Amino acid sequence: MTASSSLRPTLKAQLLERIGHLNLAEALLPASHPDIDQLIHDLEAITPIAQPLQADHWPTLLGTWDLIYASQGTVVTRRLPLWPVGLRRVWQRLAPSAQPSVPIVTENGAVVSLPVIGELTAIAQGVWQPYEEAESASVSFGSFSLQPTRLLGVTGLHLPKLTLPIFDALRREALWITSYLDDDLRIGRGATGNLFVFQRTSIGQGGWASKPSPAP
């Protein structure tokens, strides 16, 4: 066993423990957590998979991942302080595409709670185009949907979903780097250096959905 492989479980346990002390809003809203960021850097340096976007590694890469930490917030959470809402869950689902020209499709979703009204699920559908070095990809989104999932305290409702296409002229591509990957933990970086930590969603479990954040 190499020194890095023996150190990795300890670093992972420390990272998850530090993140676990935060509620979801604290973990996903822009804030300074230098101890967490340093643990992320340490894990990135000893990633067990150097080219995570190679097709050989897709069994590990693909699936549903709950976002448990974002150093500079996300597109959704950077706007949360403007709304009287609570954050219930943020996730990303990666799957192989049926189109040869589009290797990986992605579903980025968030569940937020609205006072009095209930819960709303927002989902963006997009694609990943990996680069040859198999660590980074160009990401773009083609549609966005909103659906009430709990209304006035009543769950199990099948309310209509509003899906809006994102026209080509408004579509933006972003650089996404997968800097660490193992069976149940994934770390990504945005073009601005934002750090994202994902944990594989447990079967039959909603991940962070069971640990909602208070309304900001």
Rank of each mutant, 00 (worst) to 15 (best):
P30N: 07
P59H: 12
L15Y: 06
G118A: 05
S138Q: 10
W58L: 04
S101K: 08
L185G: 09
L94P: 02
T106Y: 05
T149M: 11
W128V: 00
L151W: 08
H33T: 01
S5K: 02
G204D: 07
L164I: 14
G156I: 11
T2A: 13
T163F: 03
V112T: 08
L114P: 03
D183L: 09
H41G: 03
Y180I: 03
A191C: 00
L164F: 02
A110T: 13
G109K: 05
F198N: 06
P9A: 15
G193F: 08
Q14L: 11
P48W: 14
G204R: 06
L175W: 00
L152Q: 00
Q72I: 02
V197G: 12
L181K: 06
E44F: 05
P103I: 03
T192M: 11
T106M: 12
P59M: 07
P52F: 04
D37N: 15
H158G: 04
P59G: 10
L53F: 12
G153L: 03
L94R: 01
F196P: 09
V127L: 06
W83K: 08
G20P: 09
P100I: 07
P81N: 08
V75M: 04
P52Q: 07
I104R: 01
L195G: 00
T47F: 06
Y180F: 15
P165D: 05
W128I: 04
V85P: 09
A13V: 00
S4N: 10
I117T: 11
F167I: 08
P160N: 01
A70M: 12
H21N: 13
A215R: 15
H57C: 09
F198D: 07
E173P: 00
I40D: 04
E119R: 15
L170C: 12
R200G: 02
N23A: 07
E119M: 03
G86W: 14
H57E: 12
D35H: 13
P84A: 14
W58P: 00
L94E: 00
I123A: 07
T155C: 10
W58I: 01
A25T: 07
R89N: 11
L16S: 06
I117A: 14
G109V: 07
T121V: 09
A31S: 15
G206L: 04
W65Y: 02
P165S: 07
A191R: 01
G142H: 15
T10R: 14
T121S: 15
S143M: 05
